[in-house]
Design a protein around this nucleic acid. Structure first.
Lengths: 342, 342
DNA sequence: TCACATTAGTTAAACGTTTAACTTTGTTTA
DNA sequence: TAAACAAAGTTAAACGTTTAACTAATGTGA
């Protein structure tokens, strides 16, 4: 069996309390005793037991990370990176991150994630949109909660958000700056706060540039912002508006769908048509041409959410909203409106 | 505070031992008492504390998952999915999975992952290649260990492996079946057992088809099997062998590099040149044309590794090697050798 | 010189379970 | 009828820490 604090105490000729105080660097201990104890710790290869510690301190040492399986499968590289950002940051603090997926149609009777049932987390991060009744049940249990990339209306909890409006402005302004005046918007799930704000940014940029907003240029009918729906939206939009020269898609997945539609229909990108996405999913780089987009600092988003929740656990104070800035990434899918087609 | 076992005992009018026995479904308890206790548990919303349990049972309830940061960043979608497979499977068992990355040049004095320091795992899964001295130190601590996608020479521990040889044969035979006779191989890090076996499969398929092996058709100089090195390898290989009609790349990342090189140099895929990869990373689908490849069941690989290690923890028996079968995925990057170039 | 701090440690209870060993009561068996 | 056994619980120790409250020794100011 592993050595315990008692073994160390005996070896160093002190009480277990002293050993504990040394471990926690308490000033009550003289330098000499400290040295002696540290030496014993080293020679015995002593490591404190986490479960014993957790029991007495009444903490779990874990942060739960919840996401719907739907989100996870559909937009995996996006949320995976947020998770990783959380994971990395948690390591520096003193936590582990436990992952759980829930069904997107989670309902009353469904089992809560196991780490909640076992009281195995000190706090929870929810990534992306989840069913309201899940949120309610967690709040009922009074487990500290933070949301990343999902804006809640009741401001019970901190929200770590992408600056979606700014992103929408950046993307649209980029196209405007290149000389585009006919700019389409491809979106989805208009209930989703993030997507809505990107749309708001789009409109705001048009207004700033004194370009009239035209709702014929907007296609937001589908539920999920995925590749197939991007393809279909592009089809509708372009068939309806022959004069369009560019599209801002609400995320990269849809942008990729748009690109495929354009390619399938003989448009050259960016010569005939400029297209910009949002998210900067890594795979953008594989595209031909590489996609201009708005970079979302995913790792940073995850890290920030850990910082928020652990600081809450320490100080019991919550900031309401954190807005993480985004960045315009110009690649080769956008250019000045060039040789017009047909 | 949450209710404890004492509260339940008091509420049900029994001892805490009885409550514990009920929870563990011990036959010593009469049906009537059992019913009574279960009712109290329900009305009080009692949930056993994991840390108390862990302390007394001397288990952590966690499995560690270790990977080098290098692997993780370079081939993220691949190992991420293995991790997820482990995560999902662990949930059904009674474990959480804790992730840790280590530096690929991990050395003696470096800190072991925190979950090892804190004795917070019952077993460890190592994914992909890691430095030998890390392995040695874990073995020293006598923590049960399993390797996924990395073959260890000393057979101390179970190895959950992709059937790389079979994959190499499948890929190469596919090209041969299409009529190719000049088939290049693009690889890397010839020390890496997995890559080596893919190469073995390549040679074996050639032999099976009575096609002579030509080491001019092989390029395995670079250290990492990534996109850039794929690009460079294709360049060398094709400049050297004008008669090549197809390439089997040891993974998709390199295959993508090869495709980029081919595109940059005016080759049409698959008309002028067939290319097949290995791994079936999701992003293959974005490529133009979509890449034929060998699918590795990543989720399954992770799940299997959890099954192996938890079954070891229960029964203390280890299977030596598990070979997970792979599958040929034919997309549009391979076809019969067609209209030759220039 | 004495009351009082300060320093450097110790003692012992507490955290919430599990489980071996024990008790009590009732039922067989020889 | 007594001894043996089975059934259904209980008691109490143990797991390995942390920490409030205590103690003993030394230093300090009036």
């Amino acid at each position: 069996m592993n050595p315990t604090i008692k073994d160390v105490a005996k070896h160093a000729g002190v009480s277990t309390a002293t050993v504990s105080l040394v471990i926690h660097d308490n000033s009550r201990i003289s330098p000499e005793t400290k040295r002696k104890v540290l030496k014993s710790i080293k020679t015995l290869h002593y490591l404190p037991s986490k479960s014993a510690r957790d029991l007495v301190t009444q903490r779990a040492g874990n942060i739960g990370f919840i996401i719907t399986d739907d989100h996870f499968l559909r937009t995996e590289p996006f949320y995976t990176r947020i998770f990783l950002g959380a994971e990395f940051e948690a390591r520096d603090g003193d936590y582990y991150v436990l992952l759980a997926t829930v069904e997107s149609n989670f309902n009353e009777e469904d089992q809560l994630p196991r780490f909640i049932q076992e009281r195995n987390v000190d706090g929870i991060i929810i990534a992306g949109k989840v069913p309201q009744n899940l949120i309610d049940r967690i709040l009922e249990l009074k487990i500290p909660l933070a949301f990343v990339d999902y804006e809640t209306t009741n401001n019970c909890c901190p929200n770590i958000l992408i600056d979606n409006i700014q992103g929408g402005i950046l993307a649209t302004s980029h196209l405007i700056g290149l000389g585009h005046k006919q700019i389409g918007f491809v979106g989805a799930d208009i209930q989703h706060p993030s997507l809505l704000k990107r749309f708001t940014g789009y409109k705001q940029a048009l207004e700033n540039a004194k370009i009239g907003f035209n709702d014929k240029f907007v296609e937001t009918g589908s539920l999920y912002p995925d590749r197939q729906n991007g393809y279909d939206a592009a089809k509708k939009l372009i068939e309806k508006n022959k004069n369009l020269t560019s599209i801002f898609a609400c995320n990269d997945a849809m942008a990729i769908g748009v690109m495929h539609y354009l390619k399938d229909n003989g448009f050259k990108i960016p010569d005939d048509f400029s297209i910009i996405g949002f998210d900067d999913v890594e795979s953008d780089l594989l595209l031909d041409p590489p996609l201009s987009t708005i970079r979302v600092p995913k790792i940073e988003l995850g890290a920030e959410s850990i910082r928020i929740i652990t600081s809450y656990l320490k100080t019991k104070t919550i900031p309401k909203k954190i807005l993480v800035p985004v960045e315009l990434i110009i690649r080769q899918s956008t250019s000045a409106p060039g040789s017009k087609r047909i």
